[in-house]
Write a protein that binds this DNA or RNA. Structure first.
Lengths: 365, 365
DNA sequence: CGATAGACTGCAAACGATTGCAGAAACGCT
DNA sequence: AGCGTTTCTGCAATCGTTTGCAGTCTATCG
């Protein structure tokens, strides 16, 4: 079907081994034959068979990325980044969609290792720690966005405590005192950390935490809508909602539309993680950006580092760091409004500017 | 590193060949040893090495999906569908992102064939026809969404002529006479076909085509914005815009926001292809749905059919059909409004209901 | 000029599976 | 019991590469 190494060797009247060495550049080969073989290989259109090579070397030049879905814009850009980076290095990306379902995750992991992937970047569900731990003996693994607490895998995380803190502080600086929080499940790292950032900002500002303003759970847009309604039905509804859960955003938006609540005039809205349409929306939606692109790039860096280390049997590539944090950034658009508060006009001019400066610098750690 | 067939054979005190036959079910094996081997294999946790198997059989159990990007919601759902279907059959999906760039497409295709993929679903750029044609001798290929005119590859297409026709007719039935069209490049199938559907609806309604209302090109949201401005700056601007190009939608939306143009009161807006947030947007955006889910499913069906045919050397799986069309569907939400026209109040009550019925039934062909 | 190191090259054995072919066992039949 | 079938099993080759080892050739040095 296609040109094999044997064909090239025959055409050049050398043995297969010489051909192999000349083309891979391993071993000693005379300059002359080397060049000749490269030329002949090109003429014949020889392309090495990665399967055969993989059988011998135990590598597949396949790297898998396992994410929950592709609806989440962060996962989209991560997938695009990972694919682009890997391609440049001659790897192919296997993109798998696990649906945040432990069973599916487990199945997929098995298949992937069967296929002898050279590396894996995974957004773990958190329920397959044992399996991941076992696999990590065979394959370099980097966790992304979420930590699996049952493992000690290297993990690239968004700086969620900082992000949530930044967002909440921004709202406080705008004069908001009652800030609703809609946040992810508390059995995920990000869910817990975003809550803690929110709480910290509140505490720093001397605002007492009101649990009626906090809703945490696993999300569909629909659930987001439910929680938004609960918040707005409160005797003293919040003047701002921090939607610190990506999936919930649509639901919240629907509720404001349904009830004819003007954003930001009646209610300020701050969301977490960007979506391509946020800046085109009216009003353009302010967000805390989790830095998806940076996260993906860092994850790839770390994975390559580990793969490299393993290849050279220089240990497992541990650099003593278990956890990398990528700074979050506040992106102000038009969905948050200054509250005049019970007191007279804008008393917070200086504060507001300080908010801006804090927003400008990304929170590197 | 992991359990091989040899290990299983040794444990069972049979030869590798017997073990192979017992576990794959090929060839004759006595009931008893068969069962015994299956049991032992399970006990040892044996998992066949697809690379070794692939070397021998020439198959990889890898199927590639090559799309332009993941930002486009249609591609997202297609990727999810394809992944789910393939996984159920024991295949792994290789998702590649070609950026609608011929060079990238070409490179990716080469890599994929190197990896001995068992099948390929591709959204072609249209510039690599020759290469695709060559590859199709080695690998079953199905084109999706776009046709590559230089090939005679089996292609699964949205019924764009019908979809554009349905959409335009809907607007006409609402009383619009001047309907702007923003549509994709005319060197793509979909671009041409959507234009032709638009033209047909106009002609049927006896409306003369006005080329000032038609803008075609390759899109970024930014270009969409530019075209929208041009339309709105016309001496006699349209009362409705049909954004028959997915990428342009955001730009158009921004322009309406910028200029404080109320949708649908000042301008009706009909878009092509759904996005998850369209129904949560305010106003919810009416669309012509291209049936991405159905498209993906059909493409997988056809690909499997071809792969099967090739496997059994029953020919190449041609069933004499070159082109499959998946019906488009009008989904009415709130972005299109009845025009009272120059004549007095709602004269079009019956028309409006007819429009609804036509919307309800999907346009199967 | 002969020995010897050094630079190349080729042979053949892997890698882990599948598979044609032939030998072995089991069975029925006369 | 002897023979022919049938049913099962094992040997060995194969897929396309890589790679340890041994052999060949050239050049250099004494």
């Amino acid at each position: 079907m296609s040109v094999t190494l044997k064909d090239v060797a025959q055409a050049a009247r050398v043995s297969v081994s010489t051909a192999s060495r000349a083309l891979t550049g391993t071993g000693l080969t005379s300059e002359r034959t080397q060049q000749r073989l490269v030329r002949i290989a090109r003429e014949l259109g020889y392309r090495p068979n990665p399967i055969a090579r993989g059988l011998k070397t135990g590598q597949s030049r396949l790297v898998a990325l396992l994410v929950h879905n592709l609806t989440n814009a962060s996962f989209q850009v991560m997938a695009e980044v990972v694919q682009a980076r890997l391609k440049a290095l001659g790897y192919q990306m296997l993109l798998c969609i696990g649906g945040d379902d432990p069973q599916q995750e487990s199945d997929t992991l098995t298949t992937l290792v069967d296929h002898r992937i050279d590396g894996l970047i995974v957004v773990p569900t958190g329920k397959n720690g044992a399996q991941l731990k076992t696999l990590s003996k065979d394959v370099p693994i980097v966790c992304l966005v979420r930590r699996d607490d049952a493992t000690d895998l290297e993990t690239v995380l968004a700086d969620d405590p900082q992000g949530a803190y930044l967002g909440t502080r921004h709202l406080i600086e705008l004069g908001h005192k009652r800030i609703g929080l809609i946040v992810g499940r508390q059995d995920t790292t990000s869910g817990r950390e975003r809550l803690s950032g929110y709480v910290r900002a509140l505490r720093e500002a001397g605002i007492t935490r009101d649990d009626a303003l906090i809703h945490a759970g696993h999300f569909e847009p629909e659930t987001g809508a439910t929680f938004a309604r609960k918040l707005l039905d409160l005797p003293r509804p919040p003047s701002a909602i921090f939607v610190a859960n990506h999936e919930a955003t649509l639901g919240v938006l629907r509720v404001t539309a349904e009830r004819n609540i003007a954003v930001p005039d009646d209610l300020s809205l701050l969301c977490y993680e960007d979506m391509p349409w946020f800046e085109w929306h009216r009003p353009a939606i302010s967000i805390v950006d989790n830095g998806a692109r940076d996260l993906a790039n860092l994850a790839v860096d770390r994975l390559l580092h580990r793969m490299d280390a393993r290849g050279n049997s220089k240990g497992n590539g541990n650099d003593g760091v278990r956890e990398y944090r990528v700074g979050a950034k506040l992106i102000q658009r038009d969905s948050c409004r200054q509250i005049d508060g019970p007191a007279p006009a804008k008393p917070a001019k200086s504060k507001s500017s300080s908010s801006k400066s804090s927003a400008a610098k990304s929170a590197k750690v």
